[in-house]
């Protein structure tokens, strides 16, 4: 019961947030919408016993990453307006078509009760609890290689960002 209510409530909030990301004219509004979506998703993670991941989601994703986004928006995105007219031919129509196709697929799943399309086989063992210990245990034993690889990736990303900022590109004067 609780789960159902939570699902409907935060599900709608997530969709509202997503729609505002796409539809808002002001980029700050888009960022706010995204934060809303992320927080809703964190709720879902908690509901599904993924505690650690939920915490990380809020702290890192909604906290650090979105802050970064807001910085950049402030730097370059706020007061610039966007041209509403679409220049690329076929972009809008084709996009609508694709959108409808995907939507149609989703609707088909819901209406047709064909959950087997989406879920797969159901194992009847204990549902895992995503506590810190459990995550840590998996991370440092089976998944240690990807772990190290991602740490390397972070270093590379940090270095890359510094490099990009340190050597500003010389742009020629624009008319």
């Amino acid at each position: 019961m609780t789960e159902l209510v939570l699902f409907y409530l935060f599900g709608s909030l997530a969709i509202v947030g997503a729609l505002s990301v796409v539809l808002a004219k002001n980029p700050v509004r888009s960022a706010m919408g995204l934060i809303l979506t992320m927080l809703s998703l964190a709720v879902f993670y908690v509901v599904q016993s993924a505690y650690f991941v939920a915490a990380v989601q809020v702290i890192v994703y909604a906290g650090a990453v979105m802050t970064l986004f807001l910085f950049v928006i402030m730097l370059i995105g706020v007061d610039r307006s966007e041209d509403l007219k679409e220049h690329i031919p076929w972009q809008r129509p084709l996009m609508f078509v694709l959108g409808f196709v995907v939507l149609g697929g989703v609707v088909a799943v819901i209406v047709g009760n064909e959950w087997s399309w989406v879920t797969g086989i159901s194992n009847l063992a204990e549902a895992p609890v995503g506590s810190a210990e459990a995550i840590g245990e998996g991370l440092f034993t089976n998944w240690v290689l990807p772990f190290e690889a991602t740490s390397l990736l972070l270093i590379v990303a940090a270095v890359g960002a510094i490099a990009l900022a340190y050597f500003p590109a010389k742009r020629k004067e624009r008319e």
């Binding site: 690329i88 076929w90 972009q91 084709l94 694709l98 196709v101 995907v102 697929g105 399309w117």
Partner: peptide
Amino acid sequence: QNGFVRSYALSIAAGVVGLVIWFL
């Protein structure tokens, strides 16, 4: 090849949708 990133993105999206439909 019109240089617009978004139309390239459109091509990618179309491809993905096609694949998904085919798989289903």
